[in-house]
Design a protein around this nucleic acid. Structure first.
Length: 423
RNA sequence: CGGGGCGUGGCGCAGCCCGGUAGCGCACCUGCUUUGGGAGCAGGGAGUCGGAGGUUCAAAUCCUCUCGCCCCGACCA
């Protein structure tokens, strides 16, 4: 079933909210995708949650392709788990802490190494059960020193986190490689220009890690990129690199948004938590671990940082909240039999991805809203075209307009989408 | 945590310096006209001026404390 504009109570704003600085934040507030509840804490409105679900969908497909199984771990975590790795103290003020009615301390999970290591240590006892690769998509909590830029740095955010458990280092590194490829594929499918860089491991730990970066002016990270070979690194990792350590070529520095991070962990968590399995000889061996994160809600904002114009959002077709918005112009247009028939063919094609703006408003407002919200395609049904059995398709990204017959509308859109999303 | 800025109908703001019945634009509601790029006219609803305390005959306005929000920095996935 398609979605009608009249079902959504959210209004777009004509004026820019004063609280927003960066473009993605401004656009999401203005277009009614999110609404702030507190600093770094946002509600996702119908448009926003749809785009979020699109990203999640792609992530799930690619995790599945990589051989990962989905789980859902608790956000509420008892402190003793965190004490076993020493992170109850080390994580500091960024960890949201609370107590239950018996004064037992808990944390709201900022990440899940402890929980998942505990889970697997209780579940996996033999090398025969390895390797294990599991992931979840879940809300994370971090009491950031300074939340900012809307979804780019929140205190509550949606993250995909995956964890691998292997019997030896070679296998752990093999999975690390699979996840690197998977991540590159995810960002490509979403329609983003991403770059993998060598990174510092920070509090998560381990001694091998790579970040996936979206180049954008508003980025909080700085990456060094070799202009000759494929080498690239976070400046935190190579603070003094004046030339490429691989080929000696010149490096340039660019600001970027971190949207993914993969870590080789080794025994960092399995040893302190005594998480081990029995090998062929019956000997107890700690798991060789890896962990792999994607900032799902941050990706939404990062996509907009990379894809917008003066009129508003320009969603990559794969993650747009709706693939097409149908604008009926003038009173009665939405009720015409030939218009309803055309909409039915779109519904057969794309179902819920069809947004019908059948509001009884002046055309200008509908055009502005459709442009602001950045649906990839607009189907414009006005008297001048419908009277001749035709419709106009506007391609948001290029501004290009096509006239097609109502009968061929679905085919034309299907072709456009295919050519816009192929790798 | 240091520095700067800001809290007044849903959004954007004025009023504060110099105390005296809370205002403008947009949005919203009703009616009529209008309908291919944010319409026009007429009418209407909506704000304990972030909160607490104080000064005063009288506080959005002056004083004290406090909470929240935004930006820069330090810090950090």
């Amino acid at each position: 079933m398609f979605v009608r504009a009249r079902q959504d109570p959210v209004l777009t704003l004509h004026e820019e909210p004063a609280e927003a600085e960066v473009v993605s934040h401004r656009l999401m507030l203005r277009a009614g995708f999110i609404k702030k509840l507190a600093g770094g804490v946002y509600s996702f409105l119908p448009m926003g949650v749809r785009a979020l679900r699109k990203i999640e969908g792609i992530v799930r497909e690619e995790m599945s392709r990589a051989g990962a199984l989905e789980v859902l771990l608790p956000a509420l975590q008892p402190s003793d788990l965190w004490e076993r790795t020493g992170r109850w103290d080390k994580y500091g003020k960024e960890l949201f802490r609370l107590s239950d009615r018996h004064d037992r301390p808990f944390a709201l999970g900022p990440t899940h190494e402890e929980v998942v290591t505990d889970l697997i240590s209780q579940t996996v006892h033999s090398y025969r059960q390895l390797p294990v690769l599991i992931y979840q998509i879940q809300t994370k909590f971090r009491d950031e020193i300074r939340p900012r830029f809307g979804l780019l740095r929140g205190r509550e955010f949606v993250m995909k986190d995956a964890y691998s458990f292997s019997a030896d280092e070679d296998d752990a590194r093999r999975i690390y490689g699979i996840m690197q490829e998977s991540y590159a594929r995810i960002f490509r499918r979403i329609g983003l220009d991403s770059r993998m860089v060598e990174a510092d491991s920070g509090l998560i730990g381990g001694n091998l890690s790579h970040e996936f970066m979206i180049l954008a002016a508003s980025g909080e990270d700085t990456v060094l990129i070799c202009e000759k070979c494929s080498w690239a690194a976070n400046v935190e990792k190579e603070p003094d690199a004046l030339a490429c350590p691989k080929c000696g070529g010149p490096v340039s520095s660019k600001t970027a948004i971190e949207v993914g991070h993969v870590f080789y962990l080794g025994h960092k968590y399995s040893v302190p938590m005594e998480a081990a399995f029995l090998d062929k000889e019956g000997k107890e061996i700690p798991f060789y671990m890896g962990c792999y994160g994607i900032g799902v809600s941050r990706l939404l904002a990062a996509a907009l940082e990379q894809s917008h114009d003066e009129q508003g959002m320009v969603w990559p077709p794969a993650i747009a909240p709706f693939r097409v918005s149908v604008l009926t112009l003038g009173p009665g247009m939405a009720d015409r039999p030939e218009v309803q028939e055309a909409i039915r063919t779109l519904e057969d094609l794309w179902g819920e991805d069809v947004y019908i703006d059948d509001r009884d408003l002046r055309p200008g407002i509908k055009f502005q809203d459709a442009d602001l919200r950045g649906f990839p395609y607009q189907v414009i049904l006005g008297e001048r075209n419908v009277a001749q059995g035709q419709a106009e398709i506007k391609i948001r990204r290029s501004g290009e307009r096509l006239i097609v017959t109502l009968d061929s509308l679905a085919i034309a859109l299907s072709d456009l989408y295919e050519s816009d999303t192929q790798d």
